[in-house]
Nucleic acid binder design. Structure first.
Lengths: 328, 328
DNA sequence: CTGTTAGCGCTTTCAC
DNA sequence: GTGAAAGCGCTAACAG
């Protein structure tokens, strides 16, 4: 069915070596023979055999992405950015999804390595020394984002701590006297890699330490709607709910609307991520924005640098900014 | 670095042929030698070389997806379903994005074929005979969804025509007297593959033909918000805006809210797709729902059937249903 | 400038 | 039951 360099060689009455020189324009070939070979190849619709080529070259020009959490609204933007940049740089993308299963994540990594990908982009749920060793043994460049795995693996992300600190300062400056900090994923602390979530929490602790007068409530579990109801009934301070992701902020918003609690008159509300669903929400949600495109693009750039053997920074921080909506 | 079957052979003092028999448990090998070989392989951490294996077997157990329109909210669900099913069936997924560029789409297809994918999933912007021939020459199983390319290529999707007919009947039954049909993508008709969009329009024409009393306005261009404003000012029939996707319905909804036009008291609003953003919108948008998971899963199933040489139906229809929200 | 040769790592056929 | 040899399609080193 498909043509081989051998066939071209036969037609042109030369050897495969010569055909190879023509096709990959390497020196040491008569321009005329080269011309002829290229013509024949063209007309035969010759396409190099990727597997054979990769087998001998040891490079596949493909990268693997291992992601969890398709539900996160960042996903499409991230995947888009990754695929686009990879494609620009001549790489193909294997996409694998782990659904937050640590074992499946390891499986995906191993299988990608088996397929000889040149590098891997990883948004991990695994962590710890055993996992770091596992990654090391894979012997392939890895770049992480979202959740840090190791200080020795390049990591691209927002400075979550600083972002939350900024948010708290911003809320305090707006005259809020009590902050309800909402981060249900923290309930899984210790069970899975929650680096980003934990960093945000640390940022919150730091911020309240530097703002003595501020009252705080911390809600880190599934039954958060009930607890918020209870908290809102208590006291008469000017309150705001600070959510560590827009997803939860939106759930809270829906809940408050149903209870006819007004935002921001009765309570303020702030999210994190600036997911694009927000464009359709009213009141416009205040949130922390950053470019998920940048995360994806930079991660690919770093990975390709590593593949090429270049040194890359272990931390790449994507800038964030506070988006002032109508909800605070 | 990585171990080869040759190395195992040497260690065990046998030939590569025997090692192969052990590893791929084929008959004709002494159970004891087999046992030993497997042990050595295990302990060496032997992994078969994917490229070499594929080269000789002619199959890569990978499928390619060629998609446009990452912005469509269906994307995450679709990609999730595709990857999950492919992975269940032992296939890896190459993801390529075309950004609605017909040439890039062809590029992606060609490159995937070069990489010897076993089959391709295609959401196309291309259409027409030349493209069908192009696909034919690729000589690889293809399954399409979203936009039909050819009657000769398996296609998985909703029955858009019936869905819109159902919607119109439903609206008429609710007492609406005038329907504003909103489908801005139709402005590109002829320039790109708009099968789904066009089918919806045909469904609309069919439905109004069977419902004589109904007034209709058809809006098929970018300046739809202004036109809707104008239409709403005119006459005093009970009006509803039927949008061919939730995305536009949400833009309209936001616009109407800003103008303080009440939904559904002043005008009804209906979408199509039931994207998950709707969960956070009020009033709850009425829409047409179908399972994008099913689209992805079935498409993969069909593709794998085709790869295995089995016959598959040329049309697979995913059921739809009307979701009654609060917006009509 | 060009041909020959030897692999890349695996599968598969055919002898023994 | 096992080994030897050929071949998948390509690249690269070495002669000529």
């Amino acid at each position: 069915m498909s043509k081989t360099s051998q066939q071209i060689a036969e037609i042109c009455g030369v050897s495969r070596g010569t055909v190879d020189r023509a096709l990959n324009n390497r020196p040491g070939i008569n321009p005329e023979t080269k011309e002829k070979i290229l013509q024949v190849a063209e007309q035969l619709g010759y396409r190099p055999h990727f597997l054979a080529q990769s087998l001998v070259k040891g490079s596949t020009r493909s990268i693997g992405a291992v992601l969890f959490d398709i539900n996160n609204r960042l996903f499409p933007q991230l995947v888009n950015a990754i695929e686009t940049r990879a494609s620009e740089l001549g790489y193909f993308l294997y996409l694998t999804l782990t659904n937050k299963d640590p074992e499946k994540e390891k499986d995906c990594l191993q299988h990608l390595v088996d397929r000889k990908v040149d590098g891997i982009l990883l948004l991990s749920v695994n962590k710890g020394e055993a996992f770091e060793q596992f990654l090391g043994k894979l012997n392939v460049p890895v770049v992480t984002f979202g959740n840090l795995v190791s200080d020795g693996i390049p990591f691209v992300w927002v400075d979550d701590r600083a972002a939350i600190r900024d948010a708290v300062r911003h809320l305090a400056a707006q005259g809020y006297e009590e902050i309800i900090y909402l981060s249900p994923p923290m309930a899984l602390a210790g069970k899975t890699n929650l680096y980003a979530v934990e960093q945000r929490y640390l940022g919150f602790e730091e911020a309240i330490a530097e703002t003595p007068g501020l009252l705080t409530d911390i809600v880190l579990h599934k039954g958060y709607l009930e607890e918020i109801d209870a908290l809102l009934r208590r006291g008469d301070k000017k309150k705001v709910i600070l959510c560590t992701s827009d997803k939860y902020a939106l759930k809270v918003l829906l809940h408050l609307k149903q209870k006819e609690i007004r935002i921001p008159q009765d309570v303020g509300l702030m999210g994190f991520d600036n997911i694009d669903t927000l464009a359709y929400i009213s009141p416009a949600l205040s949130t922390i924005a950053y470019s998920s495109d940048d995360v994806g693009t930079q991660a690919v750039d770093l990975l390709v640098d590593r593949i090429a053997g270049r040194d890359v920074p272990m931390r790449t921080t994507i800038p964030h900014r506070i988006v002032q909506g109508e909800s605070i």
